[in-house]
Design a protein around this nucleic acid. Structure first.
Length: 991
RNA sequence: GCCCAGUUGGCGGAAUUGGUAGACGCGCUGGUCUCAAACACCAGUGAGAAAUCGUGCCGGUUCGACUCCGGCACUGGGUACCA
């Protein structure tokens, strides 16, 4: 009888569930180990084969650690607030909670089929009120905290108020907005509203007028991390800059610590690098320029104070506050026009036009702080209002952007650094921080690095400015004008934002009639009837962003049901932080930055003992799928007939469905070109445009496509298959292929219809519902079993590598599982002998144990699968059926293929689950070899092998090898110059 | 542009970190079993007739380089007028 994986897997999944095999206690005599996966957003598409990749790896590691005697925490939950459920709700009117519950049920069902060892008693869902109650609670703590730069940590706001009441704010060094100085008596004289406004400048969760990324289509603001290339990450809608009153979190207060603490964690270099870039620390100098004939000054930020004598103009951002004051009357019209134009350009347009240089002269000048020379003040949109001071000192000879600007407007480009290499200053600026200073008064002759130091020194001495550090990191905008998120626990009393009491939590998400903004543009929560604090005060209508719940979920798992506290002290003291965190690299600057921020904040308050959420982070690669696109043409007018383009050859045709359901095709042109190129697609789009059609890519299900991916990036789709797939929506407007020739063709027969093909454009892309390239793991489990899916996903390649999904090799893994089974069985009977194992058998086992331990600890799961295959092949060869070998083998394979391992373990006579067995030790004594077959090489090229006893000395081998017949042959009568013998490795003869 | 990762047979990928390049699996070829197929099993499989040549390309270090160093190309990902 063959191994019946369906029966066995079902049996053990049932057993684990009934016996709560993976239930973990917060107390144990064993050492702890916390393995965490990034929890999924339960989307309507269900799990695809990409999800389990990381989960399988972490599950193997968790199971391995259990066998190694650790008390392992390995939980799972759902990041269940989010936009897709809300958008679905807008379309269908169905409450997002219902959609979310359905999706979660489906995810759970899929996860259970793969045999993960999660402790489901600790499940968390960010959209459950017993969870978001504590997310709101943490928000309250943020609201009630300020960042004291003196102690370098967050402190309670009451300490700050106390200081204000006694001494004013003169001695306070806080992470805050610019605040005017006031004394204690000033403070007491302020109105409640004034005090509240001042405190908001200090709070870590604060309300302010901020430039936000506003997405009109989504009707909400987005964080910087949620905007990619000027469009929203979800949906791809345009985003514009807008000034709005918004809740933000003061993550910038933690910029330095977020940067510095990266050194202490074992995360991949690429993630750390991405975070470093995102934080964007840059050290430089602020420098004040006196405006001529005025009391005003312009402050600039520069990282190159050494180039101060190369300044030939100063540029302000169009939004700079001084613009209107310094513009001279004769320049006013032009400047106003420029500023207005810049304001109206969306972020996207500004990004797209990066190379277009625009700017305008203000008519005013500043004085050079050292030479007194008159320097013109310009306005240019290459200067960003939100970074530094919104003004730069332009050094065209040594900065690419200043160079372009100066060239465009014909401004001077004084050279102040002589490079060591030949440099054509007419051609480009020299930006390197190397070379000798010239034409620079007191800096002359210095190397750039020394000159920077010297320049800062002199600037500070003369009171012109001072050393300053800037960060690219912005405060995180925290309000979202959406329904399906955590309500922000704030209400407004006379326009003053006030926080709820902790005992009033959770502030439940109210019911609304529609999930859309109100007619007056208020967020959906404004629709909630009678939703007021104590019946009279309006609540905040924004909800929290998607990343709020995920910023602390790793803590909640430790104590998932605590209703007194967000986490109990014992639990956090025991579990500390995550030992191994596995998830996708796409969260590099979003989630992974926020979760570090919250962890540090909670640590500052003394609530948790750790400063980082995860000691080690591994990013699993993305599993990609083949997506197939055809090009759909949509009539712009009410034309009924279709118009099609065959992208691969560039054939352009019109085809139309006549009333009698017959197809008529007219080929307009045939370019007979080979591969698809973006130019051809562009050309086709142009032709379509001219004929009054829109040419748009349209994904088709990849299972319908016969693809020749690899050589040509194209596949073939039968028209008929596609028509059947579309059902009711029979096409009359699709791109066409298959028809060649240049004359009118009529398709009247079904058989002809069937032979018609579309050529598709194939691409290997991220698995995504919208690309119709999702591959469902259930199908693999159904056909080959969960153990097979687990082994196969690991066998595909290194965990961190992105790779396209293909099932080509799955039969090899499937065979391996059957072979493993046969090792223990003869026919359908268990066939295991209690005789002692032979030396070769023990050697195979212990060699495998050694390799598997090495592989798991290095997260090299693909090679461990190979090693299991080798082991089973060798034991099969030896006809080994000894319990002494097969019992440990079942244990070492259990993390990878837990179902079959449990079954074998059980059949071997064990009544307990294999989960808590003991991982066997590798006994080196079985691995000792007495001889080694040395490769004998000549000048590094291996020619033949010869076995020598390992007890022989180098000298013995050197002598001995020269007497060999084959050596003499390869020497061809020459005398060797040198012989190198590396013990247990190689013999190399140099001729 | 900048940063990160990568480039090895027909394919996915190994290589104990400077010591036999191509483990393991897929695919393919031939064979055994079968009326036949599937399954299974056996043999072969980088190129070349061979000498030899072979880890993206050029150069270097070394007795010896997929591995280290210098330069370049390409692919994927991130990021960007950040002064």
């Amino acid at each position: 009888m063959e191994y019946n994986f369906r029966e066995v897997e079902k049996k053990w999944q049932q057993y684990w569930k009934e016996n709560k095999t993976f239930k973990t206690e917060n107390k144990s005599s064993k050492p702890k180990y916390y393995v965490l996966d990034m929890f999924p957003y339960p989307s309507g598409a269900g799990l695809h084969v990409g999800h389990p990749l990381g989960y399988i790896a972490s599950d193997i590691f968790a199971r391995y650690k259990r066998l190694k005697g650790f008390n392992v925490l390995h939980p799972m939950g759902y990041d269940s607030f989010g936009l897709p459920a809300e958008q679905y709700a807008i379309q269908t009117g169905q409450h997002p909670e219902i959609t979310t519950k359905t999706n979660i049920a489906r995810y759970r069902e899929q996860l259970d089929k793969i045999g993960f060892s999660f402790d489901w008693d600790r499940e968390v869902r960010t959209s459950n009120s017993d969870y978001y109650k504590w997310t709101q609670w943490i928000f309250i703590q943020l609201f009630n905290s300020w960042y004291n730069k003196k102690t370098n940590k967050a402190e309670n706001i009451s300490l700050l108020i106390n200081e204000f009441e006694t001494k004013g704010n003169a001695n306070i060094n806080a992470a805050c907005e610019e605040t005017k100085l006031f004394t204690a008596s000033d403070w007491k004289s302020f109105s409640e509203k004034e005090q509240s406004d001042i405190l908001l400048n200090y709070r870590l969760a604060f309300l302010s007028d901020t430039m936000v990324n506003w997405c009109p289509q989504l009707g909400t603001v987005l964080a910087n991390e949620e905007v990619k290339d000027g469009v929203s990450e979800r949906g791809g809608y345009p985003v514009e800059r807008k000034l709005m009153k918004q809740w933000s979190l003061r993550i910038t207060a933690y910029a330095d610590r977020l940067l510095k603490d990266l050194d202490g964690i074992d995360w991949t270099e690429s993630i750390k690098e991405a975070q470093r870039n995102w934080i964007g620390k840059s050290e430089g100098t602020s420098l004040k320029f006196q405006i001529s004939n005025s009391k005003l000054q312009i402050e600039v930020f520069t990282t190159r104070p050494d180039t101060i004598f190369g300044v030939s103009f100063v540029t302000l951002a169009p939004e700079h506050e001084l613009v209107s004051q310094i513009t001279t009357n004769d320049r006013k019209k032009e400047v106003d026009e420029y500023v207005t134009a810049a304001k109206n350009r969306s972020e996207r347009e500004r990004q797209a036009d990066v190379k277009k240089i625009t700017g305008v002269f203000t008519g005013s000048y500043v004085e050079h702080p050292f030479t007194g020379k008159q320097i013109p003040i310009w306005i240019g949109d290459y200067v960003l209002a939100g970074y530094g001071t919104g003004a730069v000192m332009a050094v065209p000879a040594h900065d690419t952007r200043d160079f372009a600007f100066a060239t465009h407007f014909g401004l001077e480009k004084p050279i102040v650094i002589l490079p060591a290499v030949d440099w054509d200053f007419a051609d480009a600026s020299y930006d390197e921080k190397a070379g000798k200073l010239v034409n620079s008064d007191f800096l002359n002759g210095l190397e750039v690095k020394e000159a920077i130091k010297k320049a800062i020194e002199v600037i500070e001495e003369k009171g012109l400015g001072k050393g300053k550090t800037n960060f690219r990191l912005r405060d995180a905008i925290f309000g979202r004008q959406r329904y399906w998120g955590e309500p922000i626990p704030i209400y407004y009393e006379n326009g003053i934002p006030k926080v709820l009491n902790e005992n009033e939590l959770p502030l439940l998400l109210p019911e609304v009639d529609k999930y859309l903004p109100t007619e007056t543009g208020e967020p959906p929560l404004a629709r909630a009837a009678d939703w007021k604090y104590k019946g009279k005060f309006e609540y905040e209508y924004s909800t929290m962003p998607g990343w709020a719940g995920s910023s602390w979920y790793f803590l909640r798992y430790m104590d998932a049901h605590n209703d007194k506290n967000f986490i109990g002290k014992e639990a956090i003291d025991y579990w500390q932080n995550v030992d191994l965190y596995i998830g996708g690299a796409e969260h590099a600057t979003g989630h992974l930055l926020y979760v570090r921020f919250w962890t540090k904040f909670l640590n500052d308050l003394g609530l948790i003992p750790v400063i980082e959420p995860a000691k080690k982070l591994i990013n699993q690669g993305m599993i990609q799928g083949r997506s197939e696109k055809i090009f759909k043409v949509i009539p712009k007018t009410d034309k009924k007939d279709g118009f099609g383009i065959y992208p691969e050859t560039g054939t352009t045709a019109i085809f139309s469905k006549k009333e009698n359901d017959k197809w008529e095709i007219e080929v307009i042109s045939d370019y007979s070109l080979g591969l698809i190129s973006s130019e051809i697609i562009q050309e086709c789009a142009d032709i379509a445009e001219k004929n009054g059609f829109l040419f748009v890519p349209n994904y088709v299900p990849n299972e319908l496509v016969n693809s020749t991916m690899g050589i040509e990036k194209s596949g073939e789709l039968k028209l008929n298959d596609y028509i059947n797939y579309l059902g009711e929506n029979r096409p009359n407007n699709l791109a066409l292929s298959g028809a060649t020739g240049t004359v009118h063709v009529s398709i009247t027969q079904e058989s002809q219809l069937n032979s018609l093909r579309f050529n598709t454009q194939s691409e290997i892309e991220k698995l995504s519902k919208s690309k119709l390239n999702i591959i469902n793991p259930d199908i693999i489990v159904e056909q080959h079993g969960a153990d097979c899916l687990r082994l196969y996903e690991m066998f595909l390649g290194p965990l961190e590598l992105s790779k396209p999904w293909n099932t080509n090799g799955i039969s090899g893994v499937s065979n391996f599982i059957r072979k493993l089974w046969r090792l223990y069985h003869n026919g359908d009977k268990l066939n295991v002998s209690d005789e002692p194992a032979t030396k070769p058998e023990l050697k195979v086992l212990h060699k495998t144990i050694k390799k598997i331990i090495f592989d798991i600890e290095n997260f090299s799961f693909n090679t461990s699968v190979s090693n299991f295959m080798i082991c089973v092949n060798e034991l099969t060869e030896l006809k080994c059926n000894k319990r002494e070998i097969l019992e440990p083998l079942a244990i070492i394979i259990a993390p990878y293929a837990p179902h079959i391992a449990e079954e074998l373990w059980n059949q071997l006579g064990h009544n307990e689950s294999i989960t808590y067995a003991t991982f066997p030790e590798c006994k080196e004594e079985y691995l000792i070899e007495s001889a080694f077959s040395y490769p004998v090489s000549f000048n590094g090229k291996t020619r033949f092998f010869h076995e020598y006893d390992l007890s022989l000395t180098k000298e013995n081998i050197e002598k001995e090898v020269l007497t060999l017949e084959q050596t003499i042959k390869y020497l061809e009568g020459k005398t060797p110059k040198k012989i190198i013998v590396v013990h247990n490795k190689i013999v190399n003869i140099v001729i």
